[in-house]
């Protein structure tokens, strides 16, 4: 088993913000069922939403600054921490995410290079 990090990206905070409550509820039900299925099968280690606010720390002219986290660009609205046999399986799982049916989402699939000695 390998571990994967899936970043849920989108151009806006949530592409479903302007959907009707009925559509939002349907979406929640679909995605929630998908996630709970993965949790049950042991493939999903954790799935977390991220707050849309935050901060970016970077080095500017030799000193550290923390600027507002850029919201105009693509945002990461959450992540899945997955267990899968290989990248192909992780991709297959990602593609089955029903959130793709509503709104223009992107999922970045990345393998975690396990570092021993932490945790």
């Amino acid at each position: 088993m390998k571990e994967f990090m899936l970043f849920i990206r989108s151009d806006e905070d949530n592409p479903l913000a302007n959907f009707s409550l009925k559509e939002q509820q349907k979406h929640v039900e679909k995605v929630s069922a998908y996630i709970q299925e993965l949790v049950k099968s042991g493939k999903m280690k954790s799935a977390q939403p991220l707050e849309s606010e935050g901060s970016v720390v970077s080095l500017k002219n030799g000193s550290l600054v923390d600027g507002p986290y850029n919201e105009t660009k693509e945002v990461i609205s959450g992540y899945y921490h997955l267990m899968a046999d290989d990248l192909q399986e992780a991709i297959r799982i990602a593609k089955a995410d029903p959130r793709f049916e509503d709104g223009n989402w992107k999922i970045e699939v990345r393998q975690i290079m396990k570092v021993e000695g932490i945790n």
């Binding site: 479903l16 939002q24 979406h27 929640v28 039900e29 929630s32 977390q48 939403p49 609205s77 959450g78």
Partner: peptide, 14 residues
């Protein structure tokens, strides 16, 4: 409130 539910429940589940 419902917007938060939308964001949470699509990760944490209902």
């Amino acid at each position: 409130t419902l917007y938060r539910a939308l964001q949470h429940w699509t990760f944490d589940g209902i």
